[in-house]
Nucleic acid binder design. Structure first.
Lengths: 127, 127
DNA sequence: CTGTATCCGCGAGGATACTG
DNA sequence: CAGTATCCTCGCGGATACAG
């Protein structure tokens, strides 16, 4: 038994189960946003998605889709090979709209964001 | 030399530098949201923050604060011990407002979110 | 074409000790 | 009180192989 057991922080245990944390959690996946937007214009086959998400591996696409299905943003087959389709649920369409708002906010503040990073690097360098 | 070198996916390289990805990245930190909200009512000392964020470790609080400073959401000292204060920048205040909107959306859809997970588990179990 | 099963690297989150 | 430096663990993203 290792001395280093991951302890569940008291403060975060409750937060992690909050709807906000769930949504932020799924959006933080490396390919989640791209995957959602790849389905925005309609349902897509697995290999269509793999072509659109340039560079994603087979397994990671499966994992990403399953995670999005689990949270209810995407519908699609859970078993059976062959041609199958994945698409946005109503909740998924709504989430893409929310992503749009976050993107708009982010791009509105792009100048401050890049400026802040420059200032930080400079201040650190000056030390 | 390992055969397993992490390759930078073509499709994501461009996305990762997008303002949206930067914002989602900082929001996805395990303690970022809690830290930001802990400073919402005013600047706080390091140890005040550590007490408010119940269960956070010393190092992780430092890392979290530095990341938020790097992105321009938090101001505070970069060196020198002693009593120091961390607080939200204007950009940080704005970000907390955005978080509020995301939280509102998430809680508006809480029923669908929990329902979706139940359905998913059930469908998987059924096979 | 798609799903499942391994195996692996690496970075984030965490514990702990030392410094002024 | 707060900053820096290690060391550790665990899970995500990824590569690859095989089955229907």
């Amino acid at each position: 038994m290792s001395r280093y057991r991951k302890r569940v922080a008291p403060g975060i245990a409750s937060f992690a189960e909050t709807p906000l944390a769930r949504v932020l959690g799924t959006l933080s996946g490396r390919w989640s946003v791209l995957a959602l937007e790849a389905m925005h214009e309609g349902a897509r086959h697995f290999n269509e998605l793999q072509r659109r998400l340039d560079g994603i591996s087979h397994k990671v696409l499966v994992d990403t889709l399953r995670a999005l299905q689990r949270e209810g943003f995407v519908f699609g087959p859970l078993t059976s090979p062959g041609l199958s389709e994945y698409g946005l649920t109503l909740l998924g369409v709504d989430l893409v709209a929310l992503i749009g708002e976050i993107r708009a906010w982010s791009e509105d503040h792009r100048p401050e964001l890049v400026d802040a990073r420059d200032c930080f690097e400079e201040a650190r360098a000056a030390g």
